[in-house]
Design a protein around this nucleic acid. Structure first.
Length: 524
DNA sequence: ATAGGGTTAG
């Protein structure tokens, strides 16, 4: 049974702080050394986040900083998880007196607009790019088609590819292989294969084309089909390469065909194809995942004897395997060995170790490793934060999860996973207050350009309707379309109005704008 | 940003 509690006082709400710029958060007393000055892109990103759309253009103009495409690119990367803000920022700089966008900044803006499924904006940006003679380039089309495929429009993506030469963009084997890969990476391998069959003559499909499609079949665990495609390749006179063999090897592991993988690996060695670090990493990881830790280690040791040096990725594979199938302690031994040999761990290495520690219930040591990560000049990324948030919430320490969520604000913005993890956690305690938080998180995520899953949206809406939160409903609410602060001053009802368009699909417990207004009233 | 290895999950 859900209990009704008094809503939290507005100003102490936990979500107020996480968007504030770093330099505005309270600094603790003299004992701690002063933090290093923030990077220029951090300062700029924080300015964008705390400025309303209406005043952004002038705020940027008055900001005494030299805008360069490099700075703008870095800033757009930081704002990646706040699509609407990123685009406002990009547009506000479009008519700056001393700055001009580059190919890279246009590509970035196009990527963001496409991810928001704002295709009108995408093509408007392409037109601008053309007018300013900085594109579009093949990379631009790779971005656009990838987003169309990800949005469930692979046919549209193919059409775009087939007409890209009308946009002054070369259509050649290179771009053909790109579209094949785009389709395969989004699991549309059948479409890719059809395309290959139709156009292999016209573009002169090569080994790379076939490798892409074979790998596509492996990705969807259809290794036998991959082998057929490769047989066809050989029949057409194209020779497989080491990459081809590595693709097949990984394919066997992926489908759990450990025996076949091992046999294939032995054949690769016997036939004297120069096995490389990719091959070994695949085998170490594959055996480990299958629970054959001893064999994984043996192969790891063997590679050094064969004169193939492990890479950071090889170490990451072994460390992960030990975490999952052996013990975190042994994994950390390898981690330290790695450091001793002069390797520089990357964020994946740290995330693997941190996840291992969390999984073993050692949350404090996980946090310690996160601190160590920062000292190593390897800033924790969204994944790092998501790991900690997830495990705290799974352990029932929801307050701690929220604490981590708040802390990430200054360094990186939450992504879709972060919101999904936290919103689900808001249902475990069956507390009415938690549902209010879930509602705010839902609105915040929409505001930042993330489309909640239907399940999430319905769960939150129904939860709010059922738990008697009507107490905070205000009768004199009028819809004016005017921006209304969400608590941290970055949100607006105007943005919220986009939701009906975004979720105007089947499956949402959604009738019209009224539902949203009701939700809004529950929350504010 | 033309292909292969390492993070997460049911």
């Amino acid at each position: 049974m859900l209990t009704t509690c008094n809503p939290r006082p507005r100003n102490t709400h936990p979500f107020i702080h996480h968007l504030l710029p770093h330099n505005l958060t309270t600094t603790s007393a003299a004992a701690t050394p002063p933090p290093p000055p923030p990077q220029p892109e951090t300062t700029l990103a924080n300015l964008v986040l705390t400025t309303s759309p209406q005043t952004l253009t002038s705020a940027l103009k008055n900001n005494p900083v030299q805008y360069t495409p490099e700075l703008v690119t870095k800033t757009l990367k930081r704002l990646w998880n706040h699509g609407p803000k990123s685009l406002q920022f990009f547009k506000a700089l479009s008519h700056h007196p001393t700055y001009a966008h580059s190919t890279a900044t246009f590509d970035h803006a196009i990527d963001i607009a496409a991810r928001l499924r704002d295709y009108k904006a995408v093509w408007a940006l392409v037109a601008q790019m053309k007018a300013r003679r900085v594109g579009p380039t093949p990379k631009t089309f790779a971005i656009i088609t990838e987003r169309y495929v990800a949005a469930g429009k692979p046919d549209k993506a193919v059409k775009i590819f087939l007409s890209m030469h009308h946009q002054d963009c070369p259509q050649n084997l290179h771009s053909f292989n790109t579209i094949l890969d785009v389709l395969c990476k989004s699991r549309r391998v059948e479409k890719a294969y059809s395309l290959l069959k139709v156009f292999r003559g016209r573009f002169g499909a090569d080994t790379i084309s076939y490798n892409i499609v074979a790998n596509g079949f492996c990705l969807v665990k259809r290794t036998p089909r991959a082998l057929e495609v490769l047989r066809e390749m050989v029949e057409r006179g194209l020779d497989p390469t080491l990459i081809t063999y590595n693709i097949v090897l990984k394919g066997f592991f992926r489908t759990g065909q450990i025996k076949e993988a091992w046999e294939f690996f032995l054949q690769m060695k016997k036939r004297k194809c120069e096995i490389d670090v990719f091959t070994y990493t695949t085998v170490v990881h594959g055996f480990g995942v299958a629970g054959e830790v001893k064999k994984a280690r043996k192969v790891f040791d063997e590679m050094i004897g064969m004169g193939v040096l492990p890479s950071v990725a090889t170490f990451n594979a072994l460390i992960q395997v030990l975490c999952k199938k052996d013990s975190v302690e042994n994994a950390i031994v390898v981690f330290e060995e790695m450091l001793g040999k002069g390797y520089v761990p990357n964020s994946t290495t740290y995330n693997v170790v941190i996840r291992g520690l969390c999984h073993a219930g050692k949350m404090d040591r996980a946090t310690e490793y996160m601190r160590r990560m920062k000292e190593d000049e390897c800033e924790p990324n969204v994944q790092t934060y998501n790991i900690l948030i997830r495990y705290y919430c799974d352990d029932g320490e929801i307050e701690k999860g929220i604490e981590v969520f708040e802390k990430m604000g200054g360094n990186c913005l939450p992504n879709l996973d972060t919101y999904n993890i936290l919103i689900s956690a808001m249902f475990v305690r069956k507390k009415s207050d938690d549902l209010l938080v879930a509602g705010k998180l839902l609105i915040e995520m929409v505001d930042r350009g993330f489309l909640p899953r239907k399940f999430t949206f319905n769960r939150v809406l129904n939860g709010l309707l059922l738990t008697g939160n009507q107490g905070s409903r205000s009768k004199d609410f009028h819809f004016t379309g005017k921006p209304i602060g969400l608590g941290h001053g970055t949100s607006s009802f105007h943005t919220l109005k986009l939701l009906p368009q975004q979720i105007g699909e089947k499956g949402y417990t959604w009738h019209d704008e009224i539902d949203l207004i009701r939700m809004w009233k529950f929350l504010y």
